[in-house]
Design a protein around this nucleic acid. Structure first.
Lengths: 200, 200
DNA sequence: AGAGTAACCGAACGATCGGTCGGGACAAGG
DNA sequence: CCTTGTCCCGACCGATCGTTCGGTTACTCT
């Protein structure tokens, strides 16, 4: 087995440390000195594994974007009634978001100060647009309410899903991915008010 | 009238410029040089009006927090059935969020690197807690669904509301505060699926 | 006109930024 | 043994960070 070499960093293991610090302090608020302390190696040693700070960001957001766009390639997201494809995508978004939590967290916080950040924002908009089209198709079928604008609904549902990165923490006794996905889908499609009760 | 003096900066007018730049580049990503260029005065002149960068942040998040906590003091948020008080608070949150958009935007992006940021995070948690108690009371009355955990629902609804800062832009022909508030309330309480149609 | 002061400026401060460089420690292969 | 290449280090680079300071401009008041 060739993988059992030295106990040292790879670009991937270093990335996992860096992303964690990025999420705690913010990308701009994180210095290479902070990263070196968190990783336990010197600042200059980091440059042995990656080209620089921005490459770490690029690797992180790429991983997040690959996970999200991968959803759209899955069969249940491509065939069937739009409303059911939509619900599948929503559930899978929650699952991917939790599975790749730190990477997606970082993706959702980029502001657009560098080329890498602007590229990430562009890809995000592209993904949002793909899901919005799905919602529009479901509305055309009459399967989702049309009294609220499609773009607005898309943004609000995305807001609900994306907010997961602000509070979900995978600490054993908490809820798992599936449970969160169920709750999000139920709330998004079914609403908050007690079913059959009406407006008190 | 003593207010018509010179055409110059006050701490308030300087703040409005600073908050805009903070939101574009992120607080950590904004230098005093950036602020001076945006304000059209020299870097050192800024210190004539405010003590420093962090005071600008503190003034901004204070304004946002005052707006939000003010909602809880309004009569419709204090008396009546919890579910109706909750819906009122949700609508008012949207309105305040839009009325004080740049300030609330900045508040929602604070990470906790400085004392000011940690104080802002603490106040935010306090506000969230107050609204969560309202939701809990509504659930006790049987007015909102109880199959989803109260804490989880609170967070998801907050996520939906707070996401407004990510896309709402007050450009004349867009929707106004009331319309957005209606959409949020309808989606949060009524759900996405077509009413009376069920899950076909 | 002259005094007082609010508003502003350029230059510079020490500290820290992201990144570079030459070299040392260490394991693998001969 | 010695070479080779990976991994890491301290020292240092120019640039930029938030902030300070001495001094100038421009307006108000008497």
């Amino acid at each position: 087995m060739t993988t059992a070499k030295r106990d040292t960093y790879t670009p991937e293991t270093l990335l996992s440390v860096a992303v964690q610090v990025f999420n705690e302090r913010g990308y701009d608020g994180t210095s290479m000195e902070h990263l070196s302390r968190a990783a336990g190696i010197s600042k200059s040693s980091i440059y042995h594994h990656v080209a620089g700070k921005e490459e770490l960001l690029r690797r992180a957001v790429s991983r997040a974007l690959d996970g999200l766009f991968g959803i759209l390639d899955e069969e249940d997201a491509r065939v069937g009634r739009p409303v059911e494809r939509l619900e599948y995508v929503v559930r899978r978004m929650v699952e991917v978001l939790i599975a790749e939590l730190p990477y997606v967290t970082l993706l959702l916080r980029v502001r657009g100060n560098t080329d890498t950040e602007r590229w990430a924002l562009e890809r995000r908009r592209e993904f949002d647009h793909r899901v919005a089209e799905l919602l529009k198709a479901a509305a055309a079928d009459g399967d989702v309410r049309e009294d609220i604008e499609v773009r607005l609904v898309t943004r609000l549902v995305f807001g609900m899903i994306n907010s997961i990165v602000e509070w979900y923490r995978p600490d054993g006794r908490g809820m798992n991915e599936r449970e969160v996905a169920d709750a999000v889908a139920q709330l998004a499609f079914g609403g908050l008010r007690e079913a059959g009760d009406g407006r008190g």
